[in-house]
Write a protein that binds this DNA or RNA. Structure first.
Lengths: 340, 340
DNA sequence: CTGTTAGCGCTTTCAG
DNA sequence: CTGAAAGCGCTAACAG
């Protein structure tokens, strides 16, 4: 008897075929969704497979199929709860549709073409990009290779690719309208120095509408980064300015939380009586009773749904023109704005 | 001229070989780390590959190699910032080592053997499990198939597999010692009803040490879930009990934050003067100035490092006995305990 | 060092 | 419906 335990030899379709007394083709067919097999052989094969603990080898399959069902997700800023949730939802939906997500964290610092290269070597069926720093080159490469790609909340890139984006203009406008309606008219914005498409659009929409309503000029305070500390930093500047505001739009919740805490610690202003605040994204922490931040929600579940659907559609009709899905946003009133 | 644009035919090693005027083996070798090729041919091949935009097809390669370099990460509770960070770090380290992480979110509800099945069909080189609800069956299956698997912060499972765990006993003990040293002696614990290995160990260690120091009995308050709301819920019960405590150990930061907020909103007790609080995990939010929670840190970077190293070691020596790495923890003093 | 020859495990015409 | 045969892209002996 030979030692064959070195590396638990995995059972292949021929093993199953042999045991079922049929050909490899037969077993292949039973495991191929729309193939034609007599239910009789099918049974035999299934039985044999069961007995042997057979699993089709997707890697081998994809070699002939030319489709791996692997999908790359390139993401950055995963410390932002909004991102984390986004990614979780997307991976879930992908798996539901029988794809396998390969996660590639990518900070701005990294070479985008390197990371896309890693993905392409695995013949990914598609790529989803949610990172803030939008690697133009990645898109280029995917497009020319015919790899479907979908951009999440990105607009600036100039390439014929599918996109899913939340209605950032609405975000800014809703924020302004709400603040205005609730009586605020000395307005400020808190945002990040690091530019990012979504943030800029929100900010502009807010300011534009303010101007068209003839409100006083909106002041802008910035933090170095788009995160908690950045929010605190910007609020610090705002307070130091000694100017008096009664309405504040923080372009992301993540920053808003930092702003709120800084405000509480370094000022006697009360929210919402002296100052009303609105954030954007509706991250989980915003609903924590310690914050109870009024914000504008983007439904990450719908977002994920849209992203995956976009990918599916693209697989269906590779040549169709690039699409853009715009997602609804919704005001969530909590305690940082007047009851009104 | 034929239409060959249907699906941008990908270039293979033979294309490169042809153009470089060498054999396929030659090109294979140039792309195989420790292979022997004359620098002359290597150059030619590299040039040709460059020109053609060639990429080795890892899927095909793994078919012969018997190693895909794909690594499955099965994770649950990704809403917990601690988890999110853990996962991000692990994926980063994996990629650094040239592995590709396939992320599989898995709630308790899902069928573990289904999800491991999905992974096995892709011939993953290894599996990392960080989900709380520890699927015994998964381990069994991996072990019998010879797929390396590493369990993160899991002990209860009975299988000869590698583990990485933080020193939960120390967590409990440090919490108790710190509280005690700072003068607290009417102690309580906040934890989750849903049992989890780490949480239980922390709790027990805390209580055991309290007993051996002859302190008054430690009261336990629980929330339904191991999250923010669970923490608030438990604190609500604590307050309702009208008992007076001066030291509280929340078994996770995530719960601690909810507890803190609930305490502020529903009680006049002041922290740390009336009540000192210690959490565990050191999630990002704990350092936010709004919380400034004293806690016990587990370095997620080291954790990730240890996990990946464990995997690497296992690849090296598949037959070696199962290992367990215990990670140091460290007290981080912030404002919810006395300066002292 | 290099090319030739077999496969890896699976799917897919193509006859039967 | 079924089996035989060819091949997906790559690597690993094996001779030269």
């Amino acid at each position: 008897m030979k030692r064959d335990d070195e590396r638990a030899k995995s059972i292949t379709s021929v093993d199953v075929a042999k045991r079922a007394g049929v050909s490899r083709s037969a077993v292949s067919r039973t495991f191929t969704p729309g193939a034609s097999v007599s239910s009789e052989t099918r049974e035999k094969v299934l039985k044999a497979a069961e007995d042997l603990g057979y699993r089709v080898n997707q890697l081998a399959r994809s070699l002939t199929n030319k489709r791996s069902d692997l999908v790359g997700i390139v993401a950055a800023n995963m410390d932002n709860p909004f991102r984390a949730e986004q990614i979780e939802q997307i991976t879930r939906k992908l798996i539901e549709q029988n794809f396998r997500p390969i996660l590639m964290p990518a900070e701005a610092s990294e070479d985008p073409s390197r990371i896309i290269g890693m993905l392409l070597e695995y013949s990914v069926s598609g790529v989803i990009i949610t990172s803030d720093t939008p690697p133009q080159s990645i898109c280029q490469e995917c497009v020319s290779l015919g790899v479907p790609i979908v951009l999440v909340n990105k607009k600036e890139i100039d390439a014929p690719v599918d996109r899913v984006l939340m209605d950032n203009v609405k975000c800014g406008e809703i924020a302004l309208r709400t603040l205005h309606r609730k009586g605020a008219n000395r307005l400020a914005i808190i945002t990040s120095e690091k530019p990012s498409y979504s943030l800029e659009v929100r900010q502009k929409a807010f300011i534009n509408l303010a101007e068209s309503l003839d409100l006083a000029q909106v002041e802008i305070y910035t933090g170095s980064f788009q995160n908690y500390n950045g929010g605190a930093e910007a609020m610090h500047k705002l307070i130091a300015s000694e100017r008096s505001f009664d309405g504040l739009f923080c372009v992301t919740d993540y920053m808003a939380l930092g702003s709120l805490d800084e405000l509480r610690l370094s000022s006697t202003l009360s929210v919402p009586d002296d100052l009303q605040i609105i954030g954007c994204d509706d991250i989980r922490q915003s609903s924590w009773q310690g914050y109870a931040l009024t914000t504008i929600r983007q439904d990450t579940d719908k977002l994920a749904q849209a992203v995956v659907q976009t990918l599916l559609d693209r697989f269906e009709t590779p040549a169709a023109p690039a699409t853009t899905r715009l997602l609804e946003v919704e005001l969530i009133e909590r305690s940082t704005t007047q009851k009104n």
